[in-house]
Design a protein around this nucleic acid. Structure first.
Length: 520
RNA sequence: GGGCCGCUAGCUCAAUUGGCAGAGCAGGGGCCUUUUAAGCCCUUGGUUACAGGUUCGAGUCCUGUGCGGCUCACCA
């Protein structure tokens, strides 16, 4: 590699170091121009997608001769993925979004010079337009016998070279582009050459659309609430902060939608949902990305039992819609989303897997359980926090099949309503699948007096914990003071649902452009 | 943030105990009318992530930095 200045038509387009391959390709680009062929024409023509073309061919007369004699000329577009030159003929493959097809270039059809131009000036990765008639080769592969071709977009940088071939359903890949960092940094290249990566994002799109159709059918109204918020809330997480210059106002990127969506219940909407992005300024892991997609819905006159039922129906609906079955393979396990799902109280779950019955334990006794198990006791954790930590350590990993865990300690659930007969416990559930926490939901607290007290209690904890006061959302309390219908609320990590339905163990594999540390 | 592991050609990977930095694909030049990882002949391509150190000699050993992966912590 060396630093050179490339002069292209009107001026300098690049001063970065170009590889030898890139320099070669720029030379090819110039040869195209010298012949009057634009390397980047304004418009393309296309009569069929590749999938339509092959389908059309196979549905026509089975008489091969007839087919080839009377076949229509069709024009396809796509990326050049393979070239095999053989003297006076050449084979190639192009790929579009619908599939790939073989091309045949014959000197006696297009001319010796034209074939030579193809061989010398067209590269893997070029976007091309090709015209010809469909035929079958000796081996029975549907092939476009070209009468013409043209460049649509010259590829200057070589795509990471993955050689691949479809052989009887087996897709063999040679020199796969599978360096994880490189794939994320150049996701466009990853998508361009790894069809299984494209498929993940097709599934992701179908998941979101299935969620919408499920909720829309049940009269939920899709809404959009502020991403930039003067006060953040609805979850316990550190926010990203930003600033509005003209208003001289500090703002936060939302960490949840909850408080705004419930304001809408005060406003008279009875069923609302939002699918959007949350931002949490915290650790990155296999299951955490700083920005992630969340579904939240709020349902007036329902409680957490109703929400549990709807949750299992909704997720099973999505699985069936997207994977054609409520049975899904995830990391070697067969998950069954068919309702009803197992339900177990947090108390019973913890007793089952750790032999600790927390109802009988004070915070101090819980702390001694920590010590006897060799765990560090956080200095200022509440009793509820200790219970939750024991749960995530001893219980969570056991829940492979979708499982509702219900009834949580009050002091870690400031927005949930307590049980009628137990003021230390709230009507809350979480869903665990494949070892992941997928959903969090509760019978929502709608008593503004109780809510204010909870905020104040939490504020105290946050003061001790981080030195930062937890924001008290007075406007939210005001909204609730007008009268909020009793309701059930629900939140789900959409990225995690996509992980489950695409058998991915890393959240980054289901996010198109996952967050990466900046390079240099 | 801590621990462990990794970083070699455009891509995927080798390189014995510290002893000439290599292969396949991609690229370039040829031959080739049914190939499909086409084949055959020839061939270009390297600041071994970066900066130091030890050594006659470092891809290899040591220190630091960057980035990544895994993991722990954090994350109601």
């Amino acid at each position: 590699m060396r630093i050179i200045v490339v002069v292209y038509n009107f001026g300098v387009i690049s001063m970065r170091s170009l590889t030898e391959i890139e320099q070669n390709r720029l030379a090819k680009l110039e040869r195209l121009q010298e012949r009057g062929e634009s390397p980047f024409p304004h418009r393309a023509e296309r009569t069929h997608s590749i999938a339509m073309a092959t389908q059309y061919f196979s549905e026509r007369s089975s008489d091969k001769e007839e087919n080839e004699e009377n076949g229509l000329e069709i024009t396809l577009c796509g990326r050049l993925r393979a070239v095999r030159t053989m003297g006076k003929l050449a084979f190639a493959h192009i790929e579009d979004v619908s599939g790939r097809i073989q091309l045949l270039l014959r000197a006696d059809a297009i001319g010796k010079d034209r074939l030579k131009q193809f061989e010398s000036d067209f590269d893997l990765g070029d976007i091309v337009q090709v015209t010809g008639k469909l035929m079958e080769t000796r081996t029975g592969e549907v092939t476009l016998d070209l009468s013409g071709f043209r460049m649509l977009a010259k590829s200057i940088s070589p795509l990471p070279a993955a050689k691949e071939v479809d052989a009887e359903g087996d897709r063999k890949v040679y020199s796969a582009f599978d360096n994880v960092e490189a794939r994320y940094r150049e996701r466009y290249a990853d998508l361009a050459i790894n069809p299984h990566v494209r498929e993940i994002f097709r599934v992701r799109s179908r998941v979101v659309s299935a969620l919408r159709s499920f909720l829309d059918k049940r009269d939920f109204l899709e809404v959009e609430t502020p991403v930039l918020q003067p006060i953040y809330g609805g979850a316990a997480a550190r926010p990203f902060s930003t600033h509005h210059n003209q208003l001289h106002q500090d703002l936060f990127l939302r960490i949840s939608f909850e408080l705004y969506l419930k304001r809408l219940l005060v406003g008279g909407f009875e069923r609302v949902y939002e699918i959007g992005r949350d931002f949490r300024n915290e650790g990155v892991s296999l299951t955490h990305n700083p920005e992630f997609t969340q579904l939240e819905f709020y349902w007036a006159y329902a409680d957490y039992e109703d929400v549990m039922q709807m949750t299992e129906q909704m997720v099973a609906f999505v699985a069936k819609k997207v994977c054609n079955s409520p049975l899904v393979t995830y990391q070697g396990h067969q998950l069954n989303f068919h309702p009803p799902w197992r339900r177990v109280s947090l108390r019973d779950a913890l007793a089952e897997y750790s032999d600790i019955d927390y109802v009988a334990c004070s915070a101090n006794q819980l702390a001694s359980h920590f010590k006897s198990r060799g765990l560090k006791v956080p200095s200022d954790a509440t009793r509820g926090k200790l219970i939750e930590m024991l749960f995530s350590k001893y219980v969570e990993p056991h829940f492979i099949q979708p499982t509702f865990v219900y009834d949580y300690p009050r002091d870690i659930s400031p927005l949930a309503k307590t049980k009628e007969d137990d003021s230390d416990t709230v009507e809350r559930f979480e869903v665990f699948v494949g070892g992941l926490e997928l959903c969090n939901a509760f019978t929502e607290l709608n008593d503004p007096i109780d809510q204010e007290q909870r905020f104040l209690d939490m504020g105290g904890n946050y003061d001790k914990d981080s030195g930062e006061a937890h924001p008290l959302d007075l406007d939210y309390l005001k909204a609730m003071s007008y009268g909020m219908p009793p309701n059930g609320g629900f939140g789900m990590g959409v990225d995690r649902l996509v992980m489950l339905l695409t058998d991915q163990s890393s959240i980054r594999e289901v996010i198109l452009f996952p967050h990466l540390r900046s390079k240099e």
